[in-house]
């Protein structure tokens, strides 16, 4: 997974730093971050990342809506959804759109890395 491009879509600068800290020592390239889904979609088109980490609650375009757009363009997109609120109703809505991978905030580096590995291998972490 050396050099894998990861895009962070999250309105928290802390999450961007945490993802970089978790993944860059393991050889991945956390290329950029977007603070809302609208900018996130633009950056996806620009960078063509292999993995996208996606927050649920964001201004302008939230994570659920963003995921809908992502999967419309690329049903096989590797999207890891992150939420501080892990309640079941939210996860169900995301699953219906096609999100297969969820991790809670705050996250452990190992969990994020392993979830990305699983996503790339075509599994899910339900």
């Amino acid at each position: 997974m050396e050099g894998l491009k990861v895009l962070v879509i999250d309105d928290s600068p802390f999450i961007f730093k945490a993802v970089k800290k978790a993944l860059e020592p393991r050889g991945m390239n956390v290329i950029d971050s977007a603070s809302n889904g609208k900018v996130g979609l633009e950056l996806i088109e620009k960078y063509q990342p292999e993995v996208i980490t996606l927050d649920v609650t964001m201004p302008i375009m939230n994570g659920i809506e963003t995921a809908r757009h992502i999967f419309k363009e690329n049903p096989d997109a590797n999207v890891i959804m992150m939420s501080a609120m892990g309640d079941d109703a939210l996860i169900e809505e995301a699953k219906e759109i096609g999100v297969k991978h969820f991790i809670p905030k705050p996250f452990k580096a190992d969990l994020l890395y392993n979830t990305i590995e699983k996503a790339l291998a075509g599994g899910n972490n339900e």
């Binding site: 928290s12 501080a84 609120m85 079941d88 109703a89």
Partner: peptide
Amino acid sequence: YLYMGEFANILSGRAITFINNSNQKK
């Protein structure tokens, strides 16, 4: 300010998850 807001958000998100899950609905 931003990071303290995020800290409080994560903390309250965790608590509300416990509360909502204990009630089996949001």
